[in-house]
Design a protein around this nucleic acid. Structure first.
Length: 488
RNA sequence: GGCGCCUUCGUCAAGUGGUUAAGACACCGCCCUCUCACGGCGGGUUCAUGGGUUCGAAUCCCAUAGGCGUCACCA
C-alpha cells in the first residue's frame, strides 16, 4: 500500500440488538485508528443470517455508537460512495462475485445435502465435503437447469500452507489442509460472513481490518479469496478478547455470569458513557508516552496508535471502571451531577427532594456508579434498626455510657434552634460552641450524634449534614427515639 | 482431538540484552477529618516452568505447562 492511501476502517456488527463490551472496544479502536490517521470510519451491518435478524437492531447499534461518541463517516442512514452499507441489500453483488470465482476455477457449485452431522458421527469430517468439487460441467448444468438447490463453495488448495501478516501477531501460517471448502453463497442466496466480508472490505476500500482474535484462523480463507481475485491485501489487526472473572476467580470470555457485559447494561448501572469509553480504550491499549489515564475522546483520537495495542487478553475490572467513573463524577459540577443522579434516587420524601442538590453534592465524591445511590440514601428515608454497639468507637473514645451522657444536652440545644436557622453551617457552629464549652473532642460528640441519627457507621455526610437533610422535626424524633432505646 | 494464538504484581500495564522491573486500580498502614469518601504520604516475593545462547536475559532460541480461540449453508 502506498503512502497516499487514505486509511479506512470499519465496524461490521451483526444486528443482534446487543452491544457486547468487546464489540464496543473493537469499534472504538477501529474508529480511533481511522481518526488518528485522518481517515474514514465505516459502519457496515452484516445481516446475512436471516434466522438471527432482530428488529430495530440497526437503530440500536447506531444509538449505542452515538452514546459512546463513536461517529461513523459512512454507513446506513449516513450515506457514502460505496454503499449500500447493509449486506442484505447487496445480494446481487455477492452473487456476481461468487459466479466470477466459479468461472476462474476458485469455486464450484455444490448440490449435496448438508451431511455434516452424519460425517462427523462417521469420524471422517476432515476434507468434507468435496463431493461436488470435480463435478463434470455437463452435470453442473443439468442440475442448474433442473433448478436444483445449490451452494457455492470455495476450492481450497489441498496441500501447502497459507501465511499472512498480522500487525499484532506477526506472520501467521495455517496448513491448507485445515481449510474446508467453505460455503461462499448459501442455499438461500445470501453470502456467508467469510465471503461477504472480503467482498465488502475490498469494494469499500477498507485498508485496515481491526477485528476480534476469533478470526485469526479463518483469515487464511479470506487471504485466498483476495488472491483469487488478484486484490491487494488489507492490513490485518486481530484484537485479543476481553475476559471476565467470576466469583470463584475463574477467567473466561466476558459473559453474563461476570455481571453486565453490554454497553447499555453499564450505562443503566450508572457508569457514564464517557467513562466506559475511557476505560474500555485502556483495556488492551496503552498510550505509551504518558501515564495519564483520563482521556477525552479528542485526546484518544490524537494519541491512538497500533503500537500500544496489547496482544494478550485483558480481564474486565469493575474496580478500575468504578474509579474512572468516579473521576468523571469529580469533573462534573455539583449541578450537573445532581441532575444526572436524580433519577437513581427514586421517590424522595418532600424534605429530601427539596434538598436534593445538597445531598447529591455529598454523594458525588463517594460513588463509583449511580446505581449505588438508593443504598447510600436509604437511611435518610427510613431509620434502620441498629445495635447499641455501633456507638462504640475507639478512635473517638466513645462508649455506650459516654453516648448516654453526650446526647441529652445536644438534643436540648438542637430543640432550641429555630427552624429558620436549621442549616448545616448554623448547626455546625452551634454544636461546636457547645463541644468547646464542655471540653469534648469534636469526634467524641459527633460520633454518637451521627449514629443516633443515622443508625449506621458509614454515611454520606457528617452529623450536622444529616441533621440538615432530615430537618428539625425528624431529627429530634430520631434522636429521642434512639436515646430512649439506649437508656433501657 | 487437529490447527492457531497468548503468558510481567490480584487486575490494567511500561519494558524490546545491563533498570532499585515504571505508573494506575484494588488491598494494607499513617496523615487529614463531625464517620466514610476526597486529598496527601508510605507498604507488598510480579517477569508460568525447565533448558539453552550470552560476561550479563523479563527481553533471544527450544521444550513443557496452563489459558483462550477455531474446526457451521453463525458472525
Amino acid at each position: 500500500m502506498n503512502q497516499e492511501t487514505r486509511v479506512r476502517t470499519r465496524f461490521a456488527p451483526s444486528p443482534t440488538g446487543y452491544m457486547h463490551i468487546g464489540n464496543l472496544r473493537t469499534a472504538l479502536y477501529a474508529y480511533l485508528f481511522a481518526k488518528a490517521k485522518g481517515g474514514d470510519f465505516i459502519l457496515r451491518i452484516e445481516d446475512t443470517d436471516r434466522a438471527r435478524y432482530v428488529a430495530d437492531a440497526v437503530e440500536f447499534i447506531q444509538n449505542t455508537l452515538k452514546a459512546a461518541h463513536i461517529v461513523p463517516d459512512e454507513g446506513p442512514g449516513i450515506g457514502g460512495d460505496v454503499g449500500p452499507y447493509v449486506q442484505s441489500e447487496r445480494q446481487e453483488i455477492y452473487r456476481r462475485y461468487a459466479e466470477d470465482l466459479v468461472k476462474s476455477g476458485h469455486a464450484y457449485y455444490c448440490f449435496c445435502d448438508d451431511k455434516r452431522e452424519e460425517q462427523e458421527i462417521a469420524g471422517s469430517f476432515k476434507g468434507y465435503p468435496r463431493t461436488c468439487r470435480d463435478l463434470p460441467l455437463a452435470e453442473v448444468e443439468r442440475h442448474l437447469a433442473a433448478g436444483d438447490p445449490y451452494v457455492i463453495r470455495q476450492k481450497m488448495p489441498l496441500a501447502g500452507e497459507t501465511t499472512y501478516f498480522d500487525v499484532l501477531h506477526g506472520n501467521i501460517t495455517i496448513p491448507n489442509e485445515e481449510l474446508e471448502d467453505q460455503v461462499l453463497l448459501k442455499r438461500d442466496g445470501l453470502p456467508t460472513y467469510n465471503f461477504a466480508n472480503v467482498i465488502d472490505d475490498h469494494l469499500m476500500g477498507v485498508t485496515h481490518i481491526i477485528r476480534g482474535a476469533e478470526f485469526i484462523t479463518s483469515t487464511p480463507k479470506h487471504v485466498l479469496l483476495y488472491e483469487a481475485y488478484g486484490w491487494d491485501l488489507p492490513v490485518f489487526i486481530h484484537l485479543a478478547p476481553v475476559m471476565g472473572k467470576d466469583a470463584e476467580g475463574q477467567v473466561s470470555k466476558l459473559s453474563k455470569r461476570h455481571g453486565a457485559t453490554s454497553f447499555n447494561d453499564l450505562v443503566n448501572m450508572g457508569y457514564l458513557p464517557e467513562a466506559i469509553t475511557n476505560y474500555v480504550a485502556l483495556l488492551g491499549w496503552n498510550p505509551k508516552t504518558t501515564n495519564q489515564e483520563i482521556f477525552s475522546m479528542e485526546e484518544l483520537k490524537e494519541l491512538f496508535s497500533l503500537e500500544g495495542l496489547s496482544k494478550s487478553p485483558a480481564i474486565f475490572d469493575y474496580d478500575k471502571l468504578g474509579w474512572i467513573n468516579g473521576e468523571y463524577f469529580k469533573r462534573l459540577t455539583d449541578a450537573e451531577f445532581a441532575a444526572l443522579a436524580r433519577p437513581y434516587a427514586g421517590d424522595l420524601p418532600e424534605n429530601l427532594a427539596a434538598k436534593w442538590d445538597f445531598l447529591a453534592a455529598l454523594l458525588r465524591t463517594r460513588l463509583t456508579k449511580l446505581a449505588d445511590i438508593p443504598g447510600e440514601i436509604a437511611f435518610l428515608k427510613e431509620m434502620p434498626p441498629f445495635a447499641a454497639a455501633l456507638y462504640v468507637n475507639k478512635r473517638n473514645k466513645v462508649t455506650v455510657e459516654k453516648s448516654l451522657e453526650i446526647l441529652p444536652p445536644i438534643i436540648e440545644i438542637l430543640a432550641g434552634i429555630d427552624e429558620a436557622n436549621w442549616t448545616n453551617d448554623y448547626l455546625y457552629a452551634a454544636l461546636n460552641e457547645h463541644i468547646e464549652k464542655v471540653g469534648l473532642k469534636k469526634g467524641t460528640a459527633m460520633w454518637p450524634l451521627r449514629i443516633a441519627l443515622a443508625g449506621q457507621t458509614v454515611t454520606p455526610g457528617g452529623a450536622t449534614e444529616i441533621l440538615y437533610l432530615l430537618g428539625k422535626e425528624i431529627s429530634l424524633e430520631r434522636l429521642r427515639d434512639s436515646l430512649d432505646k439506649l437508656s433501657v
